[in-house]
Each structure stands twice: as structure tokens, then as C-alpha cells.
């Protein structure tokens, strides 16, 4: 991985993802979480040269979510287009899907997504260098740490914080033999907690690796406290206990049902955290891989 070169898109990759998620506050101090997931799915590794304007190499999928805490609400809207005729694509640091777009080049990141009449437009900026989180040959991935976010949701002014993640590589299999849980949490003192927990059964303790402001936490153990069952009977973790030598946290989903539709079952949602010494925080958890029925 080499930055800034790899900020650009990777059309050869079987899958490329951009995920922007954050927590915003309105003037009336209401908190709203949003997520924008854009996926570019490769249709064929080496397409023959075709002159047809309908010849597509990638299919773009997008999910935009809005989560409110009180009353609990989760809404997800979905878009999908082939990258032809300007319907979706990437060019000059900008990617778009229908009328959703993400501008990545320049000193600020900008986005526009939502549903007709209620679009979110945001400007994001951050100071810190990207954090490279996965560098296996299978999937390369980095995250821009805490970005300041400001903009408008419909006519309402919003501000808050967000993260941007960009990854490309192989698409995990639906119903694979492992489960991955990724935690990205901003503590109220400004520190950033990130964890990856991979496990091969719900009984085993898992292999969690966590960093607090990029410093590795010692002897981390994450246990699932509670699960939520969707209408097909699949159970997704929605409450966790994180124990380590340096930090202990109870983490829970603000709304249990924050499952995204799509080719890979993915629970991706807004969570809050509380710990010893009045530690508080909020952020996001993503779970994918095998899930219990």
C-alpha cells in the first residue's frame, strides 16, 4: 500500500469499498448517526475490449443509513448501477452512484447522499495521517482517523465527527468459516479506540487486537453480551464487553436492527460505550462472516 497513490480507485480489484460513517448533532442537540457504504464490484477480471457504451466492468452498490436514538429508528436506502453511461463510476478523485457522490481529492472530503428531499451534504477534514489497518494480499484497507464533519441534513445544520475507510481486494464468502468484528470508537476525552476481533466459533475467546490512539492494548478479550435476531433467524452481536489491562468497556448498539442488505450479511451500526472511571464513547461496530442461526 502506498499513499497518496492508493487514495485513488483500484479498478482491477474484485471488490473496492468506501465507507464513511459518523455521528452528527443538530442545533437542537439531537444526535443522528449516518453511514455511507459504496461498493464497486468487479464483473470480470480481464474484460475483452468493447466499444459499446453499455460495456461495464464494475457494478456499484450503495447503502446510506440514518440512525436515531430516541425514538429508536434505523433507515437504510439502497442504490445500484452499472458503471456505464455516467450512471456510476470514478474519475479524478470523485466517485458517484446516481446522485450520491463522494469527493476524495483535495484538502477536504465532501459527500452527498440521502433520499429525495432529505439529502445529507457534508464537508470533512482531518489532520492525522491515515492508519493502515489490513495489509494482507487479500484485502488492503486503511482508515482516516477522526474527521471533523459539518454540513446540512435537509435544511438542518449538522456537525460532528466521522471516519472514512477505503479497502480493496477479495470479497469474503457469504457464510465463511470465521467471523470478523471491527470496532471504531471515539472516547469522550478524544482518544480513538480501534479493535479487530476474529473468531471461528461463538464459544472461543477470539483473537482481538486493539489500539488506543495507535498504542496496542495488552491482553484484550472481547465477549458478546447480547445478540439480535433478524426475521430470518440469524443472530447478530449487539452488545459486547471489552476487557484489557488498560481499558474496560461495555459496548452496546444504540438500535439493535442496523443490518445492511446486500451480497454479504453485514451488521454495521452505531454503538455507545461506557467504562470504569466515567469513560464514555461512541462509534461503530461492523460484524461479518459466519453468523449463528
Amino acid at each position: 500500500m502506498e499513499l497518496p497513490r492508493d487514495h485513488d480507485d483500484h479498478p482491477q480489484a474484485p471488490l473496492e469499498t468506501w465507507q464513511l460513517y459518523g455521528v452528527l448533532t443538530t442545533p437542537s442537540r439531537q444526535k443522528i448517526a449516518f453511514q455511507l457504504h459504496l461498493l464497486a464490484i468487479g464483473l470480470t477480471p480481464d474484460p475483452p475490449p468493447r466499444k459499446s457504451p453499455w460495456a461495464a466492468r464494475r457494478y456499484f452498490l450503495g447503502y446510506f443509513t440514518r440512525t436515531e436514538a430516541a425514538p429508536a429508528k434505523f433507515h437504510v436506502s439502497e442504490r445500484g448501477e452499472r458503471a456505464v453511461l455516467g450512471l456510476a463510476g470514478t474519475a479524478d478523485g470523485r466517485l458517484w452512484l446516481d446522485d450520491w457522490w463522494l469527493q476524495l481529492r483535495g484538502d477536504r472530503i465532501r459527500l452527498r447522499a440521502g433520499v429525495p428531499g432529505r439529502y445529507l451534504t457534508l464537508t470533512l477534514r482531518g489532520e492525522e495521517a491515515p492508519s493502515i489497518t489490513e495489509t494482507s494480499a487479500a484485502f488492503r484497507h486503511y482508515r482516516l482517523p477522526l474527521l471533523e464533519a459539518s454540513g446540512k441534513w435537509a435544511s438542518e445544520t449538522v456537525h460532528g465527527f466521522a471516519w472514512l475507510e477505503h479497502g480493496w481486494g477479495q470479497l469474503p464468502l457469504t457464510g465463511g468459516a470465521a467471523q470478523s468484528q471491527r470496532f471504531t470508537i471515539r472516547l469522550h476525552d478524544g482518544r480513538e479506540l480501534t479493535c479487530v476481533d476474529v473468531r471461528i466459533s461463538s464459544e472461543e475467546p477470539g483473537s482481538a487486537q486493539c489500539r488506543l490512539d495507535r498504542r496496542a492494548l495488552n491482553r484484550v478479550r472481547i465477549t458478546v453480551r447480547d445478540r439480535w435476531r433478524d426475521d430470518r433467524g440469524t443472530r447478530y452481536p449487539v452488545a459486547w464487553c471489552l476487557r484489557s489491562d488498560d481499558l474496560n468497556l461495555e459496548i452496546r448498539a444504540v438500535v439493535p436492527d442496523q443490518k445492511l442488505p446486500g451480497p454479504v450479511p453485514l451488521w454495521s451500526g452505531w454503538v455507545v460505550a461506557e467504562g470504569e472511571g466515567d469513560v464514555k464513547g461512541e462509534g461503530f461496530v461492523q460484524s461479518f462472516g459466519f453468523l449463528e442461526d
Partner: peptide, 27 residues
């Protein structure tokens, strides 16, 4: 580096039961 997280994450890409059994033994 602890090799386990990377090795376990390989399971995300496996679906064949015989392959999973051998991967589990390695894990």
C-alpha cells in the same frame, strides 16, 4: 506479530467443509 488474527481471518474466505477442517487444525 501474533499470527492468529490473520490466520483466523482466512476463514472468511473458506466454504468447503474439508478445507475448513484442515484450516481449523492449523488454527
Amino acid at each position: 506479530r501474533d499470527p492468529r488474527p490473520m490466520l483466523k481471518s482466512v476463514g472468511l474466505y473458506l466454504s468447503d467443509p474439508a478445507e475448513i477442517a484442515h484450516w481449523r487444525k492449523w488454527v
